[in-house]
């Protein structure tokens, strides 16, 4: 049986229910059930992506809608890892809400198209570039939640956890950006051309580097500034992902296919 986009709502519903159950169990301090439920939800959701990929005969990474698929998966996965490592009871609730929002957006406004993959996207860099980016977006989504938690509670613990998330997220952000640079050289002749999408990637990267250097130097001083940088970095990611398509500067972008893609 071939899995098509029409099946997404069922897979997403099951996955979101399982993630929500996991979030509830985490609040009830039933750690094992929380982990098991969330993990099974991730497997259900990942199974859809794998089967959809097979049915589509190309990686489902071309359109904004397709990248949202991955984001929902990675943000919950990052939340689960954070929960396993630091046992924040509330993190699964937030990642579940974020993933549910993105899954709902895909149901209401799918932007999933046909099996075609334009020549420009047929590159060995396509899958690593986009998946690595989406993974970093998911991890940075968790860091953003921790930054907001720090702003609300003023607890330094959240920023210490955010440090770990930002190191992981920045590592993947860097790999995503540079795999894009290597791809750009093969496709357009230059590693970097200050295209709007590239420029916003640079802005985001710079913001996270500011966070890392601030934390490295100042430890727990300037915590509010650090938390603000997490929020600004997350806003930069959203611009880089889809917000840039709304700007007039993006009309002549070499990433013009990303009016539909991520």
């Amino acid at each position: 049986m071939m899995v098509t986009w029409d099946d997404f709502a069922w897979f997403a519903a099951v996955a979101v229910v399982l993630w929500a159950l996991g979030a509830v169990e985490a609040f009830r301090r039933h750690g094992r059930w929380a982990v098991a439920s969330t993990a099974v939800g991730i497997c259900v959701y990942a199974a859809f992506i794998v089967a959809f990929w097979a049915g589509l005969h190309r990686p489902p990474l071309r359109t904004i809608g397709e990248t949202r698929l991955w984001y929902a998966l990675f943000v919950v996965a990052a939340g689960l890892v954070t929960y396993l490592r630091w046992r924040y009871r509330w993190i699964l609730l937030f990642t579940t809400v974020m993933a549910a929002v993105f899954a709902a957006m895909n149901i209401l406004k799918p932007e999933i198209h046909d099996q075609t993959l334009m020549p420009a996207l047929q590159s060995v860099w396509f899958v690593p570039h986009v998946t690595v980016y989406m993974f970093s977006y998911g991890v940075m989504g968790c860091a953003f939640i921790l930054g907001v938690a720090n702003m609300v509670t003023r607890s330094a613990d959240y920023l210490r956890t955010a440090d770990s998330m930002v190191y992981v997220g920045t590592a993947f952000l860097t790999l995503g950006m540079l795999s894009g640079a290597l791809w750009a050289k093969e496709a357009w002749g230059d590693y970097w051309s200050w295209d709007p999408k590239e420029t916003w990637a640079a802005v985001t990267w710079g913001l996270y580097l500011m966070y890392m250097h601030l934390r490295l130097r100042c430890q727990n001083r300037h915590a509010r500034l650090a938390a603000l940088l997490l929020v600004a970095g997350f806003a930069g990611l959203q611009m880089c992902w889809y917000g840039v398509n709304l700007l007039p500067s993006a009309q002549d972008s070499m990433h013009a296919y990303s009016q539909a893609a991520g």
């Binding site: 051309s193 200050w194 709007p196 420029t199 916003w200 640079a202 802005v203 710079g206 913001l207 580097l209 500011m210 250097h213 601030l214 130097r217 611009m239 840039v244 700007l247 007039p248 500067s249 009309q251 002549d252």
Partner: peptide
């Protein structure tokens, strides 16, 4: 270390100008 922070902030700022501008300012 202040220089690190200032120059990264300046880099973000000039990139933002680039990001919102419709023509290349490289």
């Amino acid at each position: 270390p202040q220089t690190t922070f200032i120059l990264l902030a300046a880099f973000v700022a000039v990139s933002l100008i680039q990001g919102f501008h419709s023509t290349g300012l490289s």
